[in-house]
């Protein structure tokens, strides 16, 4: 496929521990096309974060490979941006909001004017134009996560990776932030890989939902979400199709937890 952006191939990750070798990721393989929004869900403790760190080049897989845009990932690739769950520890409190968003752009060879434009544009995209001069710790949790998203947007990555980004914010803020992610995807055509443990969130956000098995992890199902791209917290979530899909994913996760699903061969 010419428009394949990300290929994860037979990825395996084991840890040495005092009780022997722990197999965190058994064998994960999937591809992601350019401009797609893919959600990854799985039972807790299934190695979602480990998978993400391998994809982001922060951890070295034991076997297998990650290829981004035709290049094998061996360290953090320059065309990828990450949004962490712990926004409070991911933003630098000694920098203002603007400073945080601008920081990763400093070593990209951009003119000052271009950099400022990118920063302002990213802040605008997340609805924080008014807060550029504030410090992150003066903002609410949801706003802080918006700053982290703005930082990733300004970086202009090929792919945006989000690791349970809304797990630590309240439900209403969460809905707003989900819509923000949908908007970034639709308006800016951003490719987003979104990891979550929330089944509803994965179905609401994703065009595809990849369901992971429990550890040692493999891909249990790769599900196409055939909902309209224009989604809405009220109407979309009330659709019968939405309910069907979330029930389906829910059952898959339950099966994964019980370890009923069988591991594919190869």
């Amino acid at each position: 496929m010419p428009d394949t952006l990300l290929t994860v191939d037979h990825l395996k990750k084991t840890y040495e521990s005092s009780t022997g070798v722990v197999e965190a990721i058994g064998d994960i393989g999937f591809t992601m096309r350019r401009g797609e929004l893919v959600c990854i869900v799985g039972p807790s403790g299934c190695g979602k974060t480990t998978l993400l760190k391998c994809i982001a080049g922060l951890l070295k897989p034991t076997a297998g490979s990650v290829v981004l845009d035709g290049k094998e990932v061996t360290g953090p690739p320059p065309n990828m941006a990450l949004v962490f769950q712990e926004y409070g520890r991911s933003l630098y409190p000694w920098l203002t909001v603007r400073g945080n968003v601008e920081l990763p752009l400093k070593h990209k060879k951009l003119s000052k004017a271009r950099r400022t434009r990118l920063v302002e544009d990213a802040l605008e995209a997340v609805g924080l134009s008014h807060a550029g001069g504030s410090y992150p710790w003066q903002l609410s949790g949801g706003m802080q996560q918006r700053v982290a998203i703005a930082r990733a947007v300004a970086y202009q990555p090929e792919v945006l990776i989000m690791d349970e980004p809304f797990a630590a914010v309240d439900a209403q803020t969460r809905a707003d932030l989900e819509d923000l992610v949908r908007r970034l995807h639709l308006d800016r055509g951003m490719s987003i890989l979104f990891v979550t443990h929330d089944i509803d969130e994965s179905v609401y956000l994703g065009e595809r939902v990849i369901v992971l098995s429990k550890s040692p992890t493999w891909v249990q199902e790769d599900l196409h979400i055939d909902l309209d791209p224009q989604r809405d917290q009220i109407t979309t979530r009330a659709l019968p199709r939405f309910t069907e899909l979330r029930t389906h994913v829910y059952e898959q996760i339950q099966r994964a937890k019980r370890g009923e699903a069988t591991r594919p061969v190869g």
């Binding site: 953090p76 990450l82 962490f84 520890r89 920081l103 400093k106």
Partner: peptide, 19 residues
């Protein structure tokens, strides 16, 4: 997490030291 953030955005060693 701050260190991983710096790594993921590929900050140079000097930037990492001073930022």
């Amino acid at each position: 997490v701050m260190t991983e953030t710096a790594r993921s955005f590929a900050l140079t060693p000097t930037e990492r030291l001073f930022s």
